[in-house]
Write a protein that binds this DNA or RNA. Structure first.
Lengths: 100, 100
DNA sequence: CTACAATATAAGAAAATGCTTATATGCTTA
DNA sequence: TAAGCATATAAGCATTTTCTTATATTGTAG
């Protein structure tokens, strides 16, 4: 597979509001699906689908704990990427308030 | 607008192979549309549309130089984000070669 | 002012995503 | 092994993206 496709896949996975919410939750600590479900306004299958997509993109990892599946951020670089995107947003907001 | 949507928008913009190619080119140096066009396998309107999308997402900026429009990466954080995603890919490839 | 070069926009068809409802799978405990 | 949680998968529709072709805009040079 072309490197650009692989590279873009990670960002494609991050590029959805619900998935961004999930990642921000998991940025705090690993959670099972039911805990994520509790905190996000969506259906269980929908969340499951988003989780699968994030896992396929190597953004998340998962492990079984008895009945439950725990999801977690797979690479620490993901945390850094999220942080950087927030810095970009902050910069943009500052520019906006300067009326630029 | 919800913060997650704004956050996800940046990644949505990055999440396409052609746009990733464009960004990698511009990571070297600013280029006009025609120079980008020379190096990417696509039509001029298509590239123009991708550039617009990247600019709207605050990933790129542009400035006019006579007849030409020069595009450039707007925030240095974007470069860091790309670098981090490449580190993730490298890690994954190493895991694959370990047969894990 | 005209012609040309560089880039952007528009419109519509095709493809990909995302969501919903229904159902399946896999543990665990009785 | 049966029942009940927790999670995943499937199927189909609705929406969004993406690409293509055609055309418009804007600047420059003659």
């Amino acid at each position: 597979m072309k490197i650009e496709i692989m590279n873009a896949n990670i960002f494609k996975a991050l590029g959805h509001p619900t998935r961004m919410e999930i990642i921000k939750l998991l940025n705090e600590k690993p959670l099972c699906v039911c805990e994520i479900f509790d905190q996000i306004e969506s259906t269980q299958p929908n969340i499951s689908q988003h989780l699968k997509l994030l896992k396929d993109a190597d953004v998340l990892d998962s492990k079984r704990d008895g009945n439950k599946i725990i999801y977690l951020i797979k690479h620490d670089e993901v945390r850094k990427i999220i942080l950087l995107s927030q810095i970009i947003l902050q910069k943009e907001i500052i520019q906006l308030t300067k009326g630029k």
